[in-house]
Amino acid sequence: MFYDVDLTSRLMLGTAQYPSPKVLLEAIEASGAEVITVSLRREGVAGGAFRDLLANSCCRLLPNTAGCHTVREAVTTARMAREVFGTSWIKLEVIGHADTLQPDPFGLVEAARELCAEGFDVFPYTTEDLIVGEKLLEAGCKVLMPWGAPIGSGQGLRNLAGLRTMRAHFSGVPLVVDAGIGAPSQAAQAMELGFDGVLLNTAVAKAVDPVGMARAFGRAIQAGREGFEAGLMPERDMASASTPVFGMAELA
């Protein structure tokens, strides 16, 4: 599914902003996620505890380049992450705008080209732009991660038509909706559209009950996928009675 790795769960879970490491660990377990995202920072007081937590989780790690605004920062961060985390997977973020955290597509393609050439398995955080997607595939990416909405905004799929078009255009390419998901229903909607996975963090970490929300997302994503595989009925403008008219009594 992603760089020759098959996963059972289609949820990728971020590890930031949880009330405690214990809640994080329980949330990962409740969600069923097999991939968690991590980052690199100057070590704070809780650094050792987080390393222990990673060692105890059996999840595959997807390091990110969060916060990088230039190609150079992102490429250096990716190289550092590969050594520390021992994986060639990298969630590539090159941020273009401080308020929207919108990706810089030009820097993103350039960084992706460099990293793919160095043997990284790049998961680029991108927009739903088809041409940027094409350029990322040309650069060597085998997965695309379009945003649903700005990171941490919880707005869900803000450009539904654009995401639908993207799904149709890149029919054989694994696509993961990354960022902006706020509710399980929104994650289910992405899956019903035929996306291959959903990556989220804040919606679980900032829920009143993160563990309960993690479970809800796991189930919603599974339900959405099953709905997609079962084939959704076409939408209609007008009503169409589901109970047969044939055999109706004359009571008027």
Binding site: T37, L40, R41, R42, E43, R51, F85
Partner: peptide
């Protein structure tokens, strides 16, 4: 010099 460690990330 930057010395970085694994941290929580989204």
């Amino acid at each position: 010099v930057e010395v970085l460690s694994p941290m929580q990330g989204g």
